[in-house]
């Protein structure tokens, strides 16, 4: 077995119905289901990727539908290594909400400096005919908000999906030098509840 892959927690964020789950399913299992709903009991999906000769295990977290009423909170965000902010190019509101989601993420993930956090913006559903958010417009917004990489994807026909996810890892590597203790909260090692080795077996004396 090769060197152990580095585990990355990736969160997919954006309005309900922009195709987050579809993107995830396309990326992980290369499938698309037009009726796909949040999969009951599935916390996250894993996919191994190799970027610049390094192995990464991307652990992609499902919002579990909690974004619908904007009620995601800390357990989802904490400890995320990168964030894919998603909108649908045929839904202008989902595009306008990107800033809100970015702010929400930075707040609850407890990120101090948003500009050095690896975000990737995804404009999904480029296969649709009635697109309302222009490519350039989105591109500009990403540039103005910390030069975030922008990808236009279609989970339906698989366009760019792999590239977008891989870009998150690349972005992370790019920012690795910039990311310091200021960006992500570092609080040292904590207690692992599942630790089996008790310090003392009897408890007291």
């Amino acid at each position: 077995m090769a060197a152990k892959a580095k585990l990355l927690k990736v969160v997919l964020l954006g309005d309900g119905g922009v195709g987050k789950s579809s993107l995830m399913n396309r990326f992980v299992s290369n499938k698309f289901d037009a009726q796909s709903f949040h999969t009951i009991g599935v916390e996250f999906l894993n996919k191994d990727v190799e970027v610049d000769n390094e192995l990464y295990k991307m652990q992609i977290w499902d919002t579990a539908g909690q974004e619908r009423f904007k009620s995601l909170r800390t357990p989802f965000y904490r400890g995320a290594d990168c964030c894919l902010l998603t909108f649908a190019v045929d839904d202008v509101q989902s595009y306008r909400n990107l800033g809100m989601w970015r702010k929400e993420f930075l707040y609850y993930a407890d990120i101090k400096e948003g500009d050095s956090f690896p975000f990737v913006i995804i404009g999904n559903k480029v296969d649709v005919e009635n697109r309302v958010v222009g490519s350039e417009e989105a591109q500009e917004w990403c540039h103005a908000n910390g030069r975030m990489p922008y990808f236009e994807t279609s989970a339906k026909d698989s366009t760019n999906v792999n590239d977008a996810f891989r870009a998150a890892v690349k972005r992370l590597k790019e920012l690795e030098d910039v990311i310091d203790s200021n960006t992500k909260p570092s609080h040292g090692p904590t207690v692992d509840l599942k630790r089996k080795d008790k310090l003392q077996s009897s408890g007291c004396c």
């Binding site: 949040h38 009951i40 009991g41 599935v42 916390e43 499902d62 579990a64 539908g65 909690q66 619908r68 009423f69 904007k70 009620s71 909170r73 800390t74 357990p75 989802f76």
Partner: peptide, 16 residues
């Protein structure tokens, strides 16, 4: 919140 997340993962609907 952690229990809520577990609830949502198994299909619970949240509304604040």
């Amino acid at each position: 919140q952690s229990f809520c997340r577990m609830c949502a993962v198994f299909g619970g609907v949240y509304c604040l």
